[in-house]
Design a protein around this nucleic acid. Sequence first.
RNA 1: GCGCCCGUAGCUCAGUUGGAAAGAGCGUCUGCCUUCUAAGCAGAGGGUCGGGGGUUCGAAUCCCUCCGGGCGCGCCA
Length: 674
Amino acid sequence: MYKAVDDRIRKALRHHIHERYKTDVPVVTERPPKLAMGEVASPLCFELAKRLKKPPRALAQEIANSLKRIPGVERVEVAGGGYLNLFFDRAAFFLAACEEAGHEGAAVPAPNAPKVMVEHTSINPNKAAHIGHLRNAVLGDTFGRLLRYMGRRVEVQNYIDNTGVQVADVVLGFTHLEPKSLDEVRALAAAPKFDYLCWDLYARVTQFLADDKSRLDLRSQVLKDIEEGHGDSAEMAEIISTAIVRCHLKTVGRLGISYDLLTREGEILHLKFWDAAFELLKKSGAIQLATSGKNAGCWVMQLPSGSEKEVPEVEAAADEEPSELADAKIIVRSTGTVTYVGKDIAYHLWKFGLLSRDFYYEPFYKQWDGSEVWITSSVAGYADAPAFGHASQVFNVIDSRQAYPQQVVVAGLRALGHAEQADNLKHFAYNVVALTPRCAQELGYEIPAEDAKKPYVEVSGRKGQGVKADDLLDRLQASARKETDERHAESPEQEREAIANAIAIGALRYFLLRFTRSTIIAFDFKDALSFEGETGPYVQYAVVRVNGIVRKGLEADPNFGTANAANLKRIESGEISVAKFLAAPAGDDLWELILLAGSLDARVDAAVGAQEPAFLARYAFELAQAFNVFYHKHHILSEEDAEKRAFLLRLSSLVREQLVTALGLLGISAPDKM
RNA sequence: GCGCCCGUAGCUCAGUUGGAAAGAGCGUCUGCCUUCUAAGCAGAGGGUCGGGGGUUCGAAUCCCUCCGGGCGCGCCA
């Protein structure tokens, strides 16, 4: 609601200034620091003053006097050196916010609307998921929810690198360290906690390879077999990666995460996506064959150098390649094999529907929400598969260390003449999850003395270090369950379990979302397991409190519900006037809560615009906090003025609706009680 | 060496395109449960926004420079 009024104001100001002064200045608005300064302010007169060479305050006064009435705005004032302060019609805002909260969220997009693709999770299918993977998945999932809420058509993909070295290493573990037959591996893969078993095995393989470098040849052979897709190694890799993917889907399912499609690297290889992309790249001149120098024999891509300060050194000897080709990115090795960036370019051409090839598809797994996730296939698949791909915009949720290869993919699209797609390919970058030194020590990892003083340390997943996602979830669940059991001993077991589950997920998702993307999260059990302060459960608790009011009201009076419904109508019709409860200054605190509750649209818009789910997490917390203050100040059920009680009740449920919506976008549910 | 990110309260972090007196949580100290669940609320204390220049009517925010930290730059993925 706030955004709607703000948009209206900006539009009116822009129009007014254009008409009156025959000039255009950027019309920026902001929330003034104090309520006494109104709800929307604009400093545009400072800029206008420069253009017109007139004092800003005088201009502001002129505009305030001549501006036509804007719906929803009660009055305009001039403040400070020339600010325009606009004051909302409080009662109208409240009624409109209530109206909007009932059916919030955009309409379902048309089947042929432009598609936004979000790729996230993309965990190597060779071991259990850890906390760092969860940050990726939760960020991507939340962003997808936000896009859907804004009415975009969204397709969520999870890329599976089932033919890479990481899977090869685990195959090597089963063939050389254990050793296990194909059938034995098949049996292990069907048993629970296979991802944990591989976690440990992978760490052992890392050590095995480090002990004797010549063993890397073994790995190369396994990798080659897997890529070519034949032999026992390939079959074992298939068994392992498929089973691990199921483990991952189960783990992220606990957090309410699902996908539309799993795309596998195997198909990109087997269906020759690269061959098609290679032709395009060669034909367009996007890549060149280096004939001399250190990259001789490789097909390379020259990245547009962003800076002009590149000094054209003349150090290159006559027989050397011009230096551009020497420091270009290698796409095809001198052996003729394609690098991973090359495959990624092919994959992204497919994402945008620019490749002459497509995958086959088959249903793969029933997800937590009952939906079926599809997986790519090399053999003619289901005719009734949904139309995947053909995105107009792509977001890749990938950690920020991979910024460079992502740039190469964008440059590749651009070099092929797909400037629009290059612009619409966004690296949704985030920083990794590290551990606090204390946490690392708690887990038994040795850390160097100089690292012990740092705020965070990175641990090695290759060595089997890190916090496994399921372990963390189990701990959260157990902790929430203990608390729930103490508070609700009388409730049935199943209900207590469900409450504990909601709290555990709320705590974890909020913890991962409260940090902005560029922040390195220093993970610590103490913070992650907290249910107090700025946490998910704090927000859930505010919702529970509103539920509690209604429940208590019903307990005290069986007619509470019908009386409520009647009062609602009287408020909507204006029979009960809410303006008197909101008039300044006595009504300021209530108005402030309403204003915040009505600001969900603005915050969602900002979160999507900045690609920053943390904005919404913060909003949910702020609103919960404001509600808690209100809750302590106004005792609703004992309010003697019946009209005021009705109003306070309506306000409470408005807050609840907005909190539930915000939490839902964060992937967090609010239990009835907790 | 080149590129990207970061430096804000004791600790962990916000501060959405430059805007009106710097915020939150945790921790510390002090209060508040016979009234809608204290997973809560109120209050106290705590900051040269890494240092220094500059642009601007206005800078934590933009530019330069220095200091300190992280990451990336492979015929790995």
